[in-house]
């Protein structure tokens, strides 16, 4: 699993897709999540595009596409039950899956130890 400075996690799944979610740190900083808006599937996105809106009891925030690629799957379960993002941010509450050209792009991101240092 890799981590971005925007507190997203990324991992390649068995089908060669990149699964994206937010970290425990992000979920706890956000507080209780009450609303998630996911991108439409089969959308081409560029790294940095704000493609997810997430609202907690406190504030709204955006989640950016961590890589260039295409969103091919989204997790409707967290739209129906946004609280899952607080309960299981690293597992059940993934946000979307992307198809990217070259999985080696993941290597630019932090590994778990580096991320732990990053959040202090």
């Amino acid at each position: 699993m890799k981590f971005t400075e925007d507190h997203e996690w990324l991992r390649a799944d068995d089908n060669g897709l990149v699964v994206v979610g937010i970290t425990e740190h992000a979920s706890s900083q956000l507080g209780d999540v009450v609303f998630v808006e996911l991108p439409e599937i089969d959308t081409k996105v560029a790294k940095g595009d704000e493609i997810v809106v997430i609202e907690s009891v406190k504030a709204a925030s955006d989640i950016s596409a961590p890589l260039d690629g295409e969103v091919v799957e989204v997790n409707e379960a967290i739209v129906d039950d946004p609280g899952k993002v607080n309960e299981d941010p690293l597992g059940e509450a993934w946000f979307f899956k992307m198809k990217i050209d070259d999985l080696s792009a993941l290597d630019d991101y932090m590994d778990e130890d580096a991320y732990k240092d990053f959040v202090g």
Partner: peptide, 8 residues
């Protein structure tokens, strides 16, 4: 602003 239980 909140304790460990959280706002909800």
């Amino acid at each position: 602003v909140q304790y460990s239980a959280g706002v909800m």
